[in-house]
């Protein structure tokens, strides 16, 4: 009986999770903009890739895809580089302002991004970074970093200091001990950092809408919004775009999960 309830519960949530995804796929395959059809068929009887074709031929979708990729990759690389080193410093060194710094990183997480929109816009305007990728990469990285630094620091804390000390004695400089010994062991945390940074940049809309103003520079979420005008919405295009947007995320996730294994430091020291 308990099991039955559990299954019902799980089924409801599975449906709730899967239905929107399947629905979007279904809409993307419908010719025209038949959003509100009552048919439950996943693949509509007159299915066509018309929306997908139009997406690439009649719209600068490829351009937006490229823009988004550029921004997300830049944010991911900067995020990983900064979070892995900053987290290491917070974990291993005792310096003035360490606790304050950690607290400040946490504090930034308390404010919603929308609240920071205006000051960010003013700052970027003064720096002439409006409508520039550097501007948006800086903002996205800054948004993703606090969480990433914290979780990198947390992970480094679990790696015994004696491993670096052994490496120092074995002939490594501090930096070499870090990237030869510690960084490989921190792979699971690096993966989280990379995923988090990538996702922050890939699907963000509000900040992008403020900073990027020319259609040529739009990222995918901004591009999608283009299909929605005052009078009509191109649901077919919208859905097809959504499906394509989600593919790289899924691919990246599947690719990175192989490093998401725990217990990498197992056996290094007596537990």
């Amino acid at each position: 009986m308990k099991k039955l309830l559990l299954y019902i519960f799980l089924t409801i949530f599975t449906v709730a999770t899967l239905y929107p995804i399947l629905n979007v796929i279904s809409i993307s395959l419908r010719p025209g903009d038949r959003l509100l059809t009552t048919s439950l068929a996943l693949i509509p009887p007159d299915a066509s890739f018309q929306s997908y074709v139009r997406l690439f031929t009649e719209n600068p979708f490829l351009r937006w895809l490229w823009n988004s990729t550029l921004v997300a990759v830049a944010v991911t690389l900067t995020g990983v580089a900064l979070a892995s080193t900053a987290g290491y410093a917070f974990s291993r060194f005792r310096f003035r302002g360490r606790n304050f710094g950690m607290a400040m990183l946490l504090t930034t997480q308390m404010f919603p991004a929308t609240m920071l929109l205006l000051p960010l816009f003013i700052m970027l305007a003064k720096l002439h970074l409006i409508n520039s990728y550097i501007g948006i990469v800086v903002v996205y990285t800054a948004t993703a970093l606090p969480f990433c630094v914290w979780q990198m620091k947390g992970y480094y804390d679990t790696i015994p200091v004696s491993l670096e000390e052994a490496a120092l004695i074995d002939g490594c400089s501090r930096w070499r001990a870090f990237y030869k010994i510690i960084l490989p062991l921190a792979a699971p945390a690096l993966v989280i950092t990379a995923l988090f940074s990538f996702l922050t940049a890939w699907s963000e809309y509000i900040v992008a809408a403020q900073i990027l103003q020319s259609e040529q520079m739009f990222t995918l979420p901004l591009g999608l919004k283009q299909f929605q005008s005052n009078m009509t919405t191109e649901w077919g295009l919208y859905a097809a775009g959504s499906v394509i947007i989600s593919i790289p995320v899924i691919a990246l996730f599947l690719f990175l999960t192989r490093w998401l294994v725990s217990g990498l430091t197992l056996g290094s020291v007596k537990g």
Partner: peptide, 9 residues
């Protein structure tokens, strides 16, 4: 070292 400090990877 007391805890061996072997490189686990």
């Amino acid at each position: 070292f007391q805890n061996y400090a072997l490189y686990p990877h």
